[in-house]
Amino acid sequence: MGMSVTISAATGQDAEQIFRLQYLCFQSEAALYGNYRIDPLVQTLDAVRAEVASDCVFVARLGDEVVGSVRGSVGEDGVASIGKLCVHPRLQGHGIGARLLRAVETALTEERGAKLFRLRAGHRSEGNLRLYRRVGYQRVDTVEGADGVRMIVLEKAAGAYAATA
Rank of each mutant, 00 (worst) to 15 (best):
A60E: 07
V70A: 15
G78I: 05
R37W: 01
V42Y: 03
L116F: 07
V87W: 06
R120P: 00
L119M: 12
V67M: 11
A60W: 02
I82T: 03
R118F: 07
G63C: 11
D46R: 05
A80G: 14
V48H: 01
A98E: 04
L116G: 00
K84N: 07
L108G: 06
N35L: 11
V67H: 06
L62K: 15
G113D: 06
L108R: 06
L45E: 07
F58M: 15
H123C: 07
S69V: 09
I96R: 14
D39C: 05
G97V: 04
L100E: 12
E110M: 05
P89T: 14
D46E: 08
H88A: 15
T44K: 04
T44D: 01
V104H: 01
P89H: 14
K115S: 08
L91V: 08
V48D: 03
L100Y: 14
L85N: 03
V66M: 13
R37M: 12
E76D: 10
V66N: 12
V57I: 14
R102C: 01
S54C: 01
D77I: 00
L91T: 11
L108C: 09
S73A: 14
G34T: 12
R112F: 02
S69F: 08
P40N: 14
D39I: 00
L119E: 02
V67A: 14
C56H: 03
G75R: 13
R118V: 05
H88F: 10
V104N: 01
A107D: 02
F117P: 02
L41Y: 09
E105N: 08
A98K: 13
V42T: 12
L45T: 06
A47V: 00
T44C: 02
R99W: 08
A103V: 08
A60T: 09
T109W: 04
G72C: 10
V79Q: 15
L119I: 04
G95Q: 07
L101Y: 13
V48A: 05
A107T: 02
A80E: 12
H123I: 01
L119D: 00
R99H: 10
R37G: 06
G113S: 13
D77L: 02
E65N: 12
R120D: 02
G72Q: 12
R61N: 01
A47Q: 11
I96Y: 10
H123T: 04
V87E: 02
L101M: 15
L85Q: 07
G68N: 14
A103C: 13
G83D: 08
H94I: 04
G95R: 05
G34D: 10
K115V: 01
E76P: 01
S73K: 13
G78R: 09
C86R: 04
E51V: 03
G63R: 15
A50E: 11
E111Y: 00
